[in-house]
Structures are given as structure tokens and as C-alpha cells.
Design a protein around this nucleic acid. Structure first.
Lengths: 208, 208, 208, 208
DNA sequence: CATGAATGAGCTTTCATTCAT
DNA sequence: AATGAATGAAAGCTCATTCAT
């Protein structure tokens, strides 16, 4: 919190901020945060090493900023994608599909989120990850909505279910990131995973 | 792969190997792999810095060995826990409960597996994680068994379901590792998560 | 030597030169030469970083120019202060009083002269400090005058005495610069120190 | 304060600590603290760069340690030199002679004390220079002794006189450090300077 | 004249690894 | 087998200086 705030005004007059973020995306994804050198990012961004520090406080700040910005985009896109859907079950399936598609289209970002930021104790412990919680809460929102509409069972804990659902998707994407060949299409995986949860949460037919 | 093979014989004559692994467990869990110093591990294990290199090839090898050994234990315990259960649905619930309980009882190990070992693309890409795949395959084994017994639907892809199920549990444990207070008990979370999947995979009553 | 010569004409058309010198005075006094940043001076002077280089060749030149100009002022004031005094002994006491008073009134300048300019072998060796020698020579001038008038002993080496006298005053002012509380007033210290030297240099009464 | 305390035990088994101090003496004297590189000191000491940090906390600590140790030696030698003298006036002359001789024989140390440590605001403000105060207090001790014996006037403030005397000697040595040729011998300068102060402080003959 | 974004050389410090004892 | 002092490559970051605007 508070990272890059003073310096972010500079974004307006220059694309360097963006160039650096995008360079960092590539470099971090390829080598991992700790094995990436600031000078590599600088070279990839076509700026001098020192220029990095005009736009970011330090190496950590590059990663945090990268995450904040990209996660902001992802949140926006997800909200847009869900706008046209009303049925909670359909929303969950849409979420799954959008999530996996998005990560598939942004392999590098997916990798960074997976292995560098979400996993790193350094960042996870020190950095209160609001954007990520907002993302998870989209899921619990859908579930609560479904419960109110009488579609999903009332005994489901949305706080558990949101994590379970996200985790299921996440593990799937981790698999894809790390394995060169995909056995299943994004659509099939999204459909299967959301189906587990939808069926698993539906009000029992006989009870209804 | 190939790590510590020559040197692992030394285990027999000495507890230093074990002392180092256990020291590393504590240190890596607390500080993270890249922020842990070999000398810290040495101090925690009560050996000289150089001694580490009599038992491990390098710092990476400590982490890999740690993971291999601990994962071996986990696999053994899981097999044992499942031995007494026969019903596939019950097995899944047992798996979930055992998984979360185990991680709860080994917070440090849980943290390392979560944030350190999976973290780095370095490790995930270079190191073929057999033990982890064996662990995942326990899940798909149960699912396939359920399908053969006609309990679970045939259209379920075990390769997707195993990851989804593991991911759901994993995200739950990540939450617990990183958050100081737990809102849900291990048992409740295990029950809910397995219930989603069981219900989600069951053969439809009317179809049956 | 040769610093700022071409650029010093600019003084006439602008107060920026003066603003920068005065800003540097504050900044160097507070942080020391090596720990002061050119950008800090620029900010304090309310000019852009680059503007500094329109008026000074480089960071060193700021310090040298500052010293030259301020030392010029000090020389002028000292000559003025001594104009009304004729007796060599009284002149020495006046010198001491004026010296300590001046430094007391210009703490920042005093500090820079003390700790920054004299400090660095870099400056002391490379920069022939004419103004400083002129200042010292005021003292030896008084002593020689006293010797010619038969007031001070002929065996006194003016070259040694000037340094001794200046050093005595200088150490006193160093003490004041570095210690937060003053035990002795400027006047008392000036009187005591000049008394040592006057008594110490006077022609022996019986010999006279 | 507290510098190098933990690490100083290592001195016992190795001359590296001493080698580094002596290398730093040369390098700092030649280039000044801020213009000296740690790697230069390492090279001059014939150790690896990293070895420096086994014996010193950081670059600052090298300078402080150097000063503490050398100043300790100087204090010892001065106490020894004064042991055989009883008359306060003779003691002052002895002090002056010993001081100038010592600095003459240790030009490099003299230069560092003069221009790096005593003058540097960084060190003078942050570092309570006990050894230096002990040194000054040798002078005031002699003066007080002389006052009690009725040799020096009671109105002399020892706190002023010690600084004046030290300052006089110090300025003399600064001159020698910075100027290539010496016009006056150490002995002559010592004699003249101490004579000023002795005569200046003596009880007036007629008053006595 | 004035600006301030950009540069990149250069420095301190760290720490995995080695090897003489 | 065990030690731990020594190594030295490597990297993050700073800041005096420049130059296009």
C-alpha cells in the first residue's frame, strides 16, 4: 500500500511506466522474481537501469505494481463478462470459463500470479492483497445470490465455497502453466469444474 | 532428480542429515527460500556451514530433499488413512479431512509446500515432482474406482477432477497458512469441500 | 582556481547564483558535502537540477565558490573591524572577538569551513586557498607590526604564531559547532585566548 | 560505540584485522574517506572484499575502529612521555613536542584524524569521541595542576585553554600535512607554541 | 535561460560455496 | 567427517551530470 503513489503521476507523460511493467511481466514470468535482475527488466524495457527507479520504489514495488494493475484489468473484465448473465449457476460457469480463458491468453501474467505473487510468503504476508480478495468475493457474491434465490443450499458456507471454487480453477491453470501440453480444453475444464460445484451446491430436488 | 543420491547413504550413520532437513523446514517456512541463508540453517541444525555441503549438493538440493522426504511421509500416512475406507465417496471425504489435518499439524511443511516449492518456476519447471503426482493420483484413483463401481458419473474426467479437488483443498490451506484466525474448522471445511465434489460427481438419482 | 570564471558574469543578471550558494550553505552545513545531493540544493534554491550547472561547473565548484565568496565577505568585515584599532595587542583581541562572533552569527558557514572544506584532502590539496592565507596573514601582520613597535618579542616566529593563534580560535569554534551547549561566552573565550598570546608574546618587562 | 565488538574476538587468531586497519590508514589518507573504495582497502590489505566484512560492520566502522585503536596508542604514548616530567610548564612543552613529533612520524594517521575524522560532520556528530576528549583532558589536567601549585593563574579557564592549546598545535600540524615543505622544525614550533601558553598563563611576577 | 527526465557508471554489501586444517 | 574463515561474483540502488525540449 502506498507504493508508487507519488511517482505514478509520471505515467501521464510517458509510456515508460507501462514499458517497464510489461518488461517485468516477461522477465519475472521467465526467470521468477528472485532470479530476475533489475538490469534485465531495464534492458527489456529499453530504458536505463536508473530509469526504473524513477517509476518504482524498488524491485518489490515493480512486482506489486504489476500485480495491482493487471489484477485491476482482470477484475474489470470479469465484471463485464458476468454482466450479461443472471442465473447464479450460469454465472459460476461463466466465471470459470472467463478465468481460465483469461489466464490462457495471458500466460505470463498467470505464471507470475501463480508462482511469484500469490505463493511468495514475502509478498503474501506483507502485502494485503485487496484486489485478490475482491476477485474471490465475486464468487461468494454469486453463491450468496443463489442462496437467496433458493437455488443453492443454505448450509453452504460461501467463505469456504469461494476458496474451493477458486482453488479448483487455480490448480487447473497451474497445471497448464507448468505442463507443455494440455489434455483438456479450457472450455471443457471450465464446464466440468463449475458443474461439480453447481451440482454440489444445488438444493436437493426432493427437498425442494 | 538425481539429487542427494550418492550422499543419502550417509543418513544411516548420522542424524545430521535429518537435523539439517528439520532446521531447513523451520527456516524456509519462516523466511522463505530466497531469504533464508545457508548459514542460518547450519546454525539452526547446530552444524558448521560447510557440513551442509557434505549432505546436500547445494541450497536447492536442501529444499528438494526436504520436499521428497516429507512428501514420502505424507503419502504413507494418506495411504494408511484410506486403507480402512471402502466407499469412494467416503474415501474422498477421508482424503480431504486427512489432507487438511495433516497440513494443520505441520504448518511449517504446509507453508513450504505452498509458498516455496511450488513458487519458483525454477523448481516447478526443472524438477519433475513425482511425489506430488503420486499424491494427486490417489484422488483420481478414487474417482476412477467410483466410476467403475457406478457411483460417479462416467463423463467426469478424473484428470480434471483430481486437480480441482486438490486445488480446492489447497486454496483452503493457503488461506489458513496466511491468515492468523480460522473461521472454519478443518473438519467442517473438509466436509463441505468433499460434499461439493461428491454431490457434483454422483450419478444422477433418476438416471440411475 | 579557475572555477566559475566564465560563468560568474551571470551573477549580474540573476539572483540564481546567490540563491544556489545560499541553498548550498544550508544543505552542506546540515548534511556534509558528500552526503548532500545536488538535487537537494536545487530544491532548496527553488531551481531545477540542471540550472545548477548553468552557474557552476560541478558539485565541487559549488563548494569552492561558496567558500570564496563567503571568505571574501569575512575578510572585508575583519579589515573593517580592525580599522579603528591601533594597538597590536588590542588588535589581536579584536581579531579574536570578531572571528568568534562572526562564526557564531554564521553557524552554517562556520560548519562548512570547519568540517567540509578543510575536511577533504581532495579540496585542501588541490585548491590553493588564497583567501584563507590572506586571513591568516592579517594575524601575522599584526604580530609583525607589534614586533616593529617593540611590543612583541622579536624571537616570535609570526608564521608559527599566526597558525597557533588561528588554531586556538578555530578549535574553540569547532567545539561550539559540535556541542549543543556553550559553557563560555564568545567574549570570554576571545578575551582568554588573546590574553594567552598577548602575554605570551609581550616583551619581558625587565628586559624592556 | 559498540562497533566491531562481536567481531573483534577474531583478532586473536589472525592479523587480518590489523592488515585491514593498516591498509585503510594508507587508502583513507591518500584519497579521503568518501573517495576510498572498500575494494581498494581489500586489495591493499591483500584480502578479499568480503573478508573486510568479517572484521568490520561496514565502511564507517573501519574508520571508527582505525581511529579508536590508533588514538588508544597515542594516548598511551602521551601518558608515557609525560610520566617523567613533573613541572606543569615543562609538561606542556613536552606535550607539544610529543604531539607534533607523533604526528610527524605518522603522517597518514595525522591526515586521517585531521581531515577525515575530526572534521567530518558525519562522524563528529554521530560518534561520541571519547578518546579525543581524554586526549584534550590531559592538557586541562596539566593546567589545573599548575593552578593548584600556584604556577598558573587561577582565572584561566582550563576548558578554554585546553582547546586553545590543542587547536594551536593542531593547526600547526594541519599546515605540515598539507604543505610539502616545512619552514620550522617540530621542536621549534613546539617550543614556541608552548611558550605562548606558558607565559600567557603564568602568575604575574609582581603579583606573586 | 531554464527545465527535469533520463542516463549509466560505480559502489557497498551479501552470501553460497570452497578448502586448508 | 567436520569445521568456519575466506572468497569473490553478483546485484540493487544512487546520484552527478547531460541534453532535448
Amino acid at each position: 500500500m502506498g507504493h508508487s503513489i507519488l511517482k505514478s503521476d509520471k505515467k501521464k507523460n510517458s509510456d515508460k511506466h507501462r514499458r517497464i511493467i510489461e518488461a517485468a511481466l516477461k522477465v519475472f514470468a521467465k526467470k521468477g522474481f528472485y532470479n530476475s535482475k533489475v538490469s534485465e527488466i531495464a534492458r527489456a524495457a529499453n530504458v536505463a537501469d536508473g530509469t526504473i527507479y524513477l517509476y518504482f520504489q524498488n524491485k518489490d514495488d515493480i512486482l506489486i505494481s504489476l500485480f495491482e494493475e493487471e489484477m485491476g484489468n482482470i477484475l474489470d473484465k470479469m465484471h463485464q463478462a458476468l454482466q450479461t448473465v443472471t442465473d447464479p449457476a450460469a454465472k459460476l460457469e461463466r466465471f470459470a470459463d472467463q478465468h481460465l480463458t483469461m489466464l490462457e491468453e495471458n500466460q505470463e501474467l498467470a505464471e507470475i500470479i501463480q508462482v511469484e505473487l500469490r505463493q511468495s510468503s514475502k509478498f503474501m504476508k506483507e502485502y494485503q492483497n485487496d484486489r485478490f480478495h475482491q476477485y474471490l468475493n465475486i464468487i461468494s457474491g454469486i453463491i450468496k445470490e443463489g442462496q437467496q434465490m433458493g437455488v443453492f443450499r443454505k448450509d453452504i458456507l460461501p467463505g469456504v465455497a469461494k476458496r474451493a471454487f477458486f482453488g479448483a480453477l487455480d490448480e487447473m491453470s497451474r497445471y497448464w502453466i507448468l505442463s507443455p501440453v494440455k489434455k483438456y480444453s479450457t472450455a471443457v475444464a471450465a464446464q466440468q469444474i463449475s458443474a461439480f460445484f453447481i451440482k454440489g451446491m444445488l438444493v436437493d430436488p426432493q427437498t425442494a
